[in-house]
């Protein structure tokens, strides 16, 4: 170090400006990388916010749908849910359920009781193109298991977004 500091031959002196420019370019590249990363993070949160609202509106629409309504307006009928999920699925009812929504929106619905004893998965065959964004929104619902038993549960809509729609 001592020799380096006291070296008076000035080997690097004529190229000082080149080193300075190299440092400037390096600094700019680092700055551009930081800004890009921040922009990508902001894009992700904007995507989540924009699509969360849509997922939430779909969830509300399903919860209030007359197709799944129980004996009262605020109840979801387990008997009707059985027709949309599992082995007792009625293809016509399932088709009518999903046809109420735009064919460009791919989503699946999971409904479960709070104790996890009853779970319904409602989904249609998704399109072959791979989806890139997944957003989920949940709302509380009351499920009518039978005319005598009503239990709290959760309705979750998982929305799959295509690349062009982000």
């Amino acid at each position: 170090m001592y020799w380096f500091i006291n070296d008076d031959r000035a080997i690097l002196e004529p190229q000082n400006d080149i080193f300075a420019t190299a440092l400037l370019v390096l600094g700019f590249v680092v700055f551009a990388c930081v800004v890009s990363k921040t922009y990508i993070a902001q894009q992700d949160s904007a995507f989540a916010l924009e699509n969360y609202e849509q997922a939430s509106l779909i969830a509300q629409s399903i919860a209030r749908s007359q197709m799944l309504q129980g004996s009262r307006q605020d109840l979801m009928s387990a008997e009707k849910l059985d027709k949309l999920s599992g082995t007792q699925t009625d293809p016509r009812t399932l088709s009518l359920f999903f046809d109420s929504f735009s064919s460009n929106v791919n989503f699946q619905v999971d409904i479960s009781t709070e104790d996890g004893e009853h779970i319904w998965h409602i989904s249609r065959t998704l399109s072959a193109s791979p989806s890139v964004g997944h957003i989920a929104a949940s709302i509380p619902v009351t499920l009518e298991l039978n005319p005598m038993q009503q239990v709290p549960g959760t309705l979750t809509v998982k929305l799959f977004k295509e690349r062009w729609d982000i």
Binding site: Q54, L57, S61, D99, F101, S102, V105, D165
Partner: peptide, 9 residues
């Protein structure tokens, strides 16, 4: 800027 509605329009 284009967006897809969730419901039938």
């Amino acid at each position: 800027s284009a967006r897809t509605p969730a419901f039938r329009v």
